[in-house]
Amino acid sequence: MAKMTMVQALNMALAQEMEKDDRVVVLGEDVGVDGGVFRVTDGLIDRFGGERVMDTPLAESGIAGFSIGLALYGLRPVCEMQFSGFSYYAMHQMEAHAARLRWRSQGRFHVPMVLRCPYGGGVRALEHHSESREAYWAHTPGLKMVIPSGPRNARALLVSAIRDPDPVVFYEPKAVYRAFREEVPEEEEVFPIGRSQLVRGGKDVTLISYGATLRPTLEAAQTLHDRYGIEAEVIDLLTISPLDDELFSGSVRKTGRAVVVHEAPRSFGPGAEVVSRLVEKAFLYLEAPVKRVTGFDIVIPLYQREQEYLPHADRIMKAVRETLDF
């Protein structure tokens, strides 16, 4: 096993899938010669050629629509948006066509494509380059919305996304891209879309997060243990839609308390859906109101205030203490 960053792990997933299946093609702005703005597609053009690793013009709506056409004809396109904040041009194609053609054609046409977008703050970039708007996609029936949190699950989930017969929007936390390394096996590894994962066991409170905020959530869990002897269970959602509510509602039936953490704006964010599911599935087990630690309902601020916008371990710990003291 090699220790890899998320960028390297994603690159490996793409290369291995392209090696195995000539229906897999990669396209986007500067994904070929340049290897992508974050180098996720680095070297692929040398291995697989320009017909399978396509440098497209700057045309996000065109890239998404084009990919739908490829998928309708049986290819497995993986297209990249340089930043999630530029993907809204593509949203029309994704929601109007990618998400609907299976339903409309009663399963006779389908759109097996992946739309990859780096998302999220913590890299001192501005506005569109730092935001976390996964709820837009998760709110669209017919799309799947996946967000890995580390190199190993990023690789396993991207492989699953490429093989998935439905369109998958795949958000990559750019704050995690090179933040740490993990052992990633060379041999095939997949993780099912639509399944969350228990990453730390505990009995006092359930912390539910995903993507870039999983790390501060785990940091908070560790400090709560070290400092106060509080045992927090931590669940990584991994797929935002369709949402796996079995694992976290089971956990909350055990702990009676929950805190949901994400950097997306608070109102109508994925946390709101998680809380609703808890109300539906674990209401009588709740010992305290469910807390949310999230971004705020504003445009993400410039770099000097960015760290106050993003959930960090202190904010998460404060919310856990309030939940426990209720």
């Binding site: 890239i63 739908i68 056409g69 490829l70 309708l72 049986g74 029309h92 194609q93 046409f109």
Partner: peptide, 21 residues
């Protein structure tokens, strides 16, 4: 495979199908 009422929406899809062909 697709008749779309979003005006102009079918254009990039047709280009993708043509590429795949």
């Amino acid at each position: 495979p697709c008749t779309t009422t979003v005006v102009g929406g079918g254009l990039p899809i047709s280009v993708g199908v043509a590429f795949a062909q």
